[in-house]
């Protein structure tokens, strides 16, 4: 929406949906899904070059006019993540990085100590750092304090599709943050994304929910609309939740009938 831009560091985006590229069955399916999603920023991973590879995700992004956001997926230590980020900057000519430092392969949860260490180093090195973090309000605050341009708390484990397990933590993070809060990981379907936006997230990042859906392009459209709907609902200001009903029709001016008549 032209009057409601997302600003991260020095860039603005009209789409609040950041896409990943992992899990798509082919580059053709990926391209169709990315186009339908309306995304303007999409992640890639850095891996050893494969001389036999045909086609490239970079060509897809270039063709679609989508900005590339390298990540440090697969890094377990701050050192690995910093080196990977520096390589991505060299390879792709961007100082933006989605910083991931995971603790173990079973949960893929962030290692908060290594993450904070890497974030601080990369910020000092001139990077625009978008860290994948736990849904921990204290850690989110500390990442912001060391200069991260956004914080990207997980709703639930990567690829789990379990949605936002702790909406209250998201509210606490959003309430204190002075940088964009971006749901990262856990979205399974459109309602998860709408909830994130309703809670005040500035954007949503997802991959698996689209790339592994039975119809990726259709789910990409659903996610685009869910982001927009959730954002509008957040801006509109929802009604408070009540324990009891509150009539929406006036009680005044009702006709006076014999409650037993007419018979039916």
């Amino acid at each position: 929406m032209a009057d409601d831009l997302l600003t991260i560091a020095d860039r603005t985006f009209s789409s609040r949906l950041i896409m990943g590229t992992g899990g798509a069955p082919s580059l053709e399916v990926l391209e169709q899904a990315l186009r339908t999603s309306g995304t303007e920023l999409t992640t890639v991973a850095m891996r050893r070059i494969n001389p036999a590879a045909r086609g490239s995700v970079l060509e897809v992004l270039q063709r679609c006019g989508i900005g590339v956001l390298p990540n440090t997926a697969g890094c377990f230590t701050a050192g690995e993540a910093v080196l990977t980020a520096r390589l991505s900057r060299e390879a792709l000519g961007t100082n933006w990085v989605k910083l991931e430092v995971i603790a173990d392969e079973r949960t893929l949860l962030p290692d908060p100590i290594e993450l904070l260490d890497a974030a601080e180093t990369l910020v000092d090195d001139g990077f625009v750092v978008l860290p994948y973090t736990n849904d921990d309000p204290v850690l989110a605050r500390k990442l912001e304090d060391v200069g991260c341009a956004a914080v990207m708390p997980l709703g639930s484990p990567i690829g789990s599709g379990l949605g936002i397990r702790n909406p209250h933590n998201f509210q606490l993070i959003v309430e204190r943050a002075n940088v964009p809060v971006i749901l990262d990981a856990g979205a399974g379907t459109a309602s998860d994304v709408a909830l994130a936006m309703e809670l005040g997230c500035a954007a949503v990042m997802l991959a698996t929910a689209v790339t592994r859906a039975q119809e990726p392009a259709l789910m990409a459209e659903a996610m685009r609309k869910a982001v927009e709907a959730g954002r509008l609902a957040h801006r509109a200001g929802r009604i408070p939740k009540r324990f009891h009903a509150e009539a929406s029709s006036p009680m005044e001016g009702r006709a006076s009938f014999d409650p037993e008549a007419p018979a039916f």
Binding site: G20, T21, G22, G23, A24, L27, L30, T43, V44, A45, M46, R47, R48, I49, N50, A53, S56, V57, L58, V68, L69, P70, N71, A73, L83, T84, R86, L87, S88, E90, A91, L92, K98, E100, A207
Partner: peptide
């Protein structure tokens, strides 16, 4: 474990036992 900028590749003579990593962007995240 040290990044070598592309501008220095020609001038970088490799030594015995060097570990070289050459990366590119792939689908991920």
């Amino acid at each position: 474990e040290a990044v070598v900028p592309r501008s220095q590749w020609d001038a970088t003579v490799l030594a015995d036992a060097d570990r070289v990593e050459i990366l590119t962007a792939v689908q991920g995240g």
